[in-house]
């Protein structure tokens, strides 16, 4: 199976690999997937409380190249968006941007789940109600 140029580029030069201080109230962390399924993504956002703009995003991913690329792309897209805008990121946008083949769509779903989990973690920490999302397609 050949990888798209964009997947290869994210794999070779991943953007925003790292860890944010999860004890900070401005940081939201989403940890999704499972080791036995072959992918685990941890995606973190740091939100400016005044503007609700995501000023930083970091990821670490255990998984195949497409999973790494999906999370790397997600962090790029998150930075500069407001939390409200970030909620709208759809896994199919990731599929399209990275030209993921059908067997790799679950990687993009995982990235979307990670974004939502990070946002909810941030909301929870700040006394906001967690957003309800439809069951992800990956289940």
């Amino acid at each position: 199976m050949a990888y798209s140029e964009k997947v290869l580029d994210h794999y070779n030069n991943p953007k925003n690999v790292g860890t944010l201080d999860k004890s900070k109230s401005t940081v939201g962390t989403g940890l999704v997937g499972a080791p036995e399924c072959g992918d685990v993504m941890r995606l973190q956002i740091e939100v400016d409380p005044a503007t609700q703009v995501i000023k930083d995003a970091k990821f670490k991913t255990f998984g195949c190249g497409s999973a790494i690329a999906s999370s790397s792309l997600a962090t790029e897209w998150l930075k500069g968006k407001t939390v409200e805008e970030a909620v709208k990121i759809d896994n199919m946008d990731i599929v399209e941007e990275l030209s993921l083949p059908p067997v790799k769509i679950h990687c993009s779903v995982l990235a979307e789940d990670a974004i939502k989990a990070a946002i909810n973690d941030y909301r929870k920490k700040n006394g906001l109600e967690e957003l309800k999302f439809e069951e992800s397609a990956v289940n």
Binding site: G33, A34, P35, V40, R42, K60, F62, V138, N139
Partner: peptide, 21 residues
């Protein structure tokens, strides 16, 4: 790898409730 980081931090990976999919 987030798992490597957890391992290095001494987190027991079995203690985490993973979202199986």
């Amino acid at each position: 790898s987030p798992l490597w980081e957890m391992y290095k931090d001494g987190v027991d990976l079995n203690s985490i409730e993973w979202a199986h999919h």
